[in-house]
Amino acid sequence: MILTIAGHTFREVIRKKILHVLIGLGVLIIIVSPFIPTTDEPDARVKMMLVVFFQVVVLLCIVGIVFLSATSLPHEIEDRTIYGILSKPVSRLKIVAGKITGFALLSALVLVILGLVNIVAIQRVSSKLPEGYRGILKARNEFTASRFSIQGKSHHVREGIVWIEGGRTGIALWSFSDLYKKLDNKSSFEVEFNLKIDMLARVNAKPQFYQQR
């Protein structure tokens, strides 16, 4: 029942022109985003596209869908089309739940479409990047701890830290799929890093490792 109303809501909005305009605008912004002036750093363009997508396109979609969904039920009451549903054996709660489900599905669809367009656009731009910068899109790959390794030439040493060529400061989220909990301590994991670094250039300082508990 809820799904029926959800499907109906979905179809209603799909057939309204507002959604087409919204998606069109989103796609337009994604297409234009590589041409926004940026710094000279080779991957700055990709970073800019990501920022534009997450902060402009996604925000636009949220506002658009909030607008559509907030006006949907009042509009039906005004039109009195709601009487058509209310005179059928459907409770008012289910109607509201159906509407919410419908709009949730709808926003998911919009985000999937725009997300795919964005992926294609970013892939196109990043494929022209020099070799060392391609990794920008791979930061969220999942690693298994047992196969964890970093490859790269050492570049220079400062304050006892070996900098690897092509590496930059930044925040990375590493998620490991093969960690397990110790039985006696429920709130923390014990991680043991077994790092092996193959250095191609000679470095005078010793690399410094942090073991985290």
Binding site: R11, K16, R80, G84, S87, K88
Partner: peptide, 25 residues
């Protein structure tokens, strides 16, 4: 129930609207 004016969803066609109401039942 047949309402006073046809309070029907104008964006659907005849088949779809009957199908929708049929599903509600």
């Amino acid at each position: 129930f047949l309402p006073e004016e046809s309070y029907l969803y104008k964006f659907l066609n005849a088949e779809e609207i009957l199908d929708f109401y049929g599903k509600l039942f």
